[in-house]
Design a protein around this nucleic acid. Structure first.
Lengths: 158, 158
DNA sequence: TATTGTTATACTCTATAACTATA
DNA sequence: TATAGTTATAGAGTATAACAATA
């Protein structure tokens, strides 16, 4: 005699799920940090499209603006980018007239990256937009919680 | 007479940067969350390679294990994935014998996803490895800080 | 010998449109 | 008419190896 295995154990073999439980994943920092980052970046992409700046473009422009004369290698180290992936990005920003490349004062191999007036003007608007969308994305956090969150995240990657 | 413009303004036009200042980017949640996530994921990729599980594979397996019978659509909604990108992933897990697909008990269009004994055994090891590497990645945080960080991140994306 | 910037290239990840079978 | 799963495909993001010019 053949026993119907589907009905032997405590749990049926064929079930349907009404509410998906993700409580285990929610205990993992990597999962939560990634989900939070993607949520903010999604809004970032929408709001920054008007400036033609994706997240990495914005980061690169920001560092150049605050560090005029910075080199590609320094950018890579500061933002954890790979040199080959920065080449096209830099060329694009230069072609748009947002940055200029000038010979490095002491290292003949390197090029110093400088913001143009147009680049600085664009970044002033873009930074304001970024700050605004960040506040909105974290509207469920108090100012103190927001500061705490920044500090704790930096303890992970810095 | 031609004035050397490089020496007229307060700041020289050609400069070099010794220490790169990223303090502005560090005020942005999106930037910090992304950097922290990538830092943890980098370790995740190294440690989980032995199980053949990338981050999304692990997330999918975890949800299937804790929600036997879950459908692809439910997975997509829970993990913020797009259906077409899940197809190959599910097929791969099935081909490896880690999950099985069975007809949904009430919806003829859907397939219920179930962990196999092999899949459950693998995930038990993988989850332990994940927990371990998370603790190491957040070694500069106290247990209380780690819990706070999880809560604050979930206030962003949940 | 090491480093900066670069080219070429491959691989992964993510996104969109359109189709089928079923609800 | 709407939804679950799928196919095909395009685009963005990320990775490695190798080269020329300079330190």
């Amino acid at each position: 005699m053949i026993i119907d295995k589907k009905r032997v154990g405590r749990m049926p073999t064929v079930t349907s799920v009404d509410q998906v439980d993700t409580s285990y994943l929610q205990t993992l920092l990597g999962y939560n940090a990634r989900r939070a980052a993607l949520t903010i970046i999604e809004v970032f992409l929408e709001r920054m499209a008007q400036f033609g700046l994706r997240p990495v473009d914005f980061s690169v422009m920001s560092v150049i603006q605050h560090n005029p004369g910075v080199t590609s290698r320094q950018l890579c180290a500061a933002l954890n980018l790979l040199p080959p992936n920065l080449v096209g990005l830099i060329h694009s920003l230069e072609a748009r007239g947002l940055i200029s490349r000038r010979p490095h004062p002491t290292d003949g191999r390197a090029m110093g990256l400088h913001p143009t007036p147009e680049g600085s003007a664009l970044m002033q608007q873009a930074a304001q937009t970024a700050t605004d969308l960040e506040i909105e994305s974290s509207s469920r956090l108090t100012d103190a919680e927001r500061k705490t969150l920044l500090d704790l995240l930096q303890k992970i990657y810095l």
